[in-house]
Design a binder for these strands. Structure first.
Lengths: 225, 225
DNA sequence: TTATATTTGTGTGTATATTACACATATGAG
DNA sequence: CTCATATGTGTAATATACACACAAATATAA
């Protein structure tokens, strides 16, 4: 027991969304093992920080990013997952708004990049497994928790939400029925603002009302698409 | 990084079911801290074993039990959760069939006991939090995965399943509608066997067909109550 | 300025699923 | 053989999900 020599790390799969594609944030490894290969950002947990603090610190150190939504994903503990020594990794998954996504997508730092999830490079360690796990969770979770809003701007036209769901679910959604359903949940505030995207009729902007959602949830009313 | 001194443990919340009550397996701690208090079984992960192996080993060592269903629950990493030193614990939740449950319920070893979940003793560490987490997961999960069968005998009358759901959901379910719904999922085999429980009409026995469920799941057909 | 292309916004009828509900049947016990 | 107890079953009413098309507001090009 006293001979336990297991190191503990955290890894974060961070998703961003723009114009019909989901991307994930990766870093290029500077050192062995897997030097030069892409990996999910992460690192070792420090003695006195919580796991969430470790994730946020590592993300800031390695990518400069600050996360809008973070949740624990799964803990990967296969004894052979790191070729050097025993490392157990607690994986998180995170979401960022387009404002964050855009900034970092623009700066093409060679060592930090967004990759579209259907055009991923080879990954280090068991990171492909972790990433697939995260994608599965994201796709599933948007159907029973209103986390999709974390991938949109604070104020968004309804079509953005619809496109996000079309993308994540991988199938078309009926515009009228989708709108009816979401609006019936009573978790969106319709704003007195319009946005015009090139040609076409300007769209009304909406805003997710987190407080109202929490309130409804407490009453046992569930989000479901 | 080399100064990391975090120990890694696993803990298991094991549930059993009998006659309208859900119970959980606890052990009485032999040593400080929390000596004499009840706790969820668990212990430190050994160098070369997987997390699941660690859980199974600890359960066997501490309680003698073998588990029928095991899944990772959540990783608890609050720096202060253990008063001695930093210990991160990966919690699992497990289910056992009544055959296992009955045996161990009978032997009233002073240091290992089943407790009804609405009559729990004070627990050590953050184990009450872990336990509540597990209960929440169990209650939620039986509505979208057919794991309830792991709490019943291999062959069971329909009323057992109905009572289990009534218990876990904490509300009555309509017998006819429930039966219709479950049978429509086509994951139960009706056997040519009857069981007679004291008085009343003997009940037909059913058996969960895991293969058929896996097959349906692969086709995207989901279990849902 | 007018016509055209583009995107948003909206309602109704149909099919499907969920819910409520009561009585006959098979057995054991007295 | 009567009574108590648990099982087994169907139908009608209601609610939910789904399919589907055209008018309104703007930008652009003629």
């Amino acid at each position: 027991m006293s001979g336990q020599n297991i190191r503990l790390s955290v890894d974060a799969v961070v998703f961003g969304y723009d114009a019909g594609t989901i991307s994930v944030l990766l870093i290029k490894r500077k050192y062995e093992p897997f030097k030069g290969k892409w990996a999910i950002p992460g690192g070792f947990v420090l003695q006195d920080e919580s796991l969430e603090e470790a994730v946020e610190r590592e993300l800031k150190e390695e990518t400069g990013i600050e996360i809008d939504y973070l949740e624990q994903l799964y803990t990967f503990g296969n004894p052979k997952r790191d070729p050097r020594s025993r490392v157990v990794s607690i994986a998180y998954f995170g979401l960022v708004h387009p404002s964050t996504f855009d900034i970092f997508a623009a700066t093409d730092a060679e060592e930090v990049q967004w990759f579209k999830i259907d055009d991923l490079p080879q990954l280090s360690f068991d990171h492909d497994k972790i990433l697939q796990f995260a994608i599965t969770r994201l796709r599933a979770k948007i159907t029973y928790e209103p986390i999709g809003f974390e991938l949109l701007d604070e104020k968004f036209p309804f079509s953005d939400l619809e496109n996000l769901y079309t993308t994540l679910l991988g199938r078309p959604v009926d515009r009228r029925n989708f709108r009816k359903k979401i609006l019936s949940l009573d978790i969106l505030d319709e704003l007195d603002e319009k946005i015009s995207k090139g040609s076409g009729r300007p769209a009304n902007l909406f805003k997710f009302n987190q407080k109202r959602y929490n309130h409804l949830k407490k009453k046992g009313i569930v989000f479901e698409i």
